[in-house]
């Protein structure tokens, strides 16, 4: 059984104006010039390298880190690498106001925790890169620097079941047995 509450260092993806980045598409996350790459180990290095101001993210991120972004994170193509590159880096969770539909499914099925935080447009200013953030997948509780609580959406039932199993394949095995 995997941990349903995690704590990690936060990266807040902001644009040049200092606002939470909206509409980060799959070409910004994992550019199409790398689509021939299918080995997980090779994907991490290219993460966000087409997102203005965040080209060197892969060098700065560490396993266990969390990411925060604005609306519609992962819009665009269905490419698996846009989810897997974060898994390759060991990113523990992505918190965003909302996610692209296919991206959300891909992440759920791959066991990458996505936290939908609908009120982030209001509270996003309170979060800074380097904050220590705790997220509970079951309750949706988000805690900033052990002090400031926020409410995000809890995992759906199927999302939690797949996450706890590991991924869609492991989940499939548990469902059958």
């Amino acid at each position: 059984m995997k941990a349903t509450q995690i704590t990690g260092r936060l990266w807040v993806l902001r644009d040049a104006e200092g606002n939470l980045y909206n509409d980060i598409d799959t070409d910004m996350i994992f550019h199409n010039r790398y689509l021939h790459i299918t080995a997980l180990a090779q994907m991490g290095q290219y993460t966000l390298d087409n997102l203005k101001g965040w080209e060197d993210f892969a060098l700065r991120a560490q396993a266990g880190d969390l990411i925060m972004a604005g609306r519609n994170f992962g819009s665009g193509s269905s490419r698996q690498q846009a989810v897997d590159c974060f898994r390759a880096l060991g990113i523990a969770a992505i918190i965003a106001e909302s996610f692209g539909a296919i991206y959300k499914r891909n992440a759920i099925n791959s066991g990458l925790p996505l936290i939908a935080f609908p009120e982030l447009s209001k509270y996003g200013v309170r979060f800074q890169t380097g904050d220590t953030v705790t997220v509970n997948f079951v309750t949706g509780d988000v805690l900033r620097n052990s002090a400031e609580p926020f409410q995000a959406q809890p995992f759906s039932k199927v999302q939690l079941a797949i996450y706890e199993a590991g991924d869609l394949f492991e989940y499939g095995k548990t469902a059958e047995s």
Binding site: S78, R79, I102, R105, N106, S110, F169, G172
Partner: peptide, 14 residues
């Protein structure tokens, strides 16, 4: 509807 690769593999299998 569009899905990802992992899921497509799962649909192939199941």
């Amino acid at each position: 509807a569009g899905i990802g690769r992992t899921e497509a593999a799962a649909v192939m299998a199941t």
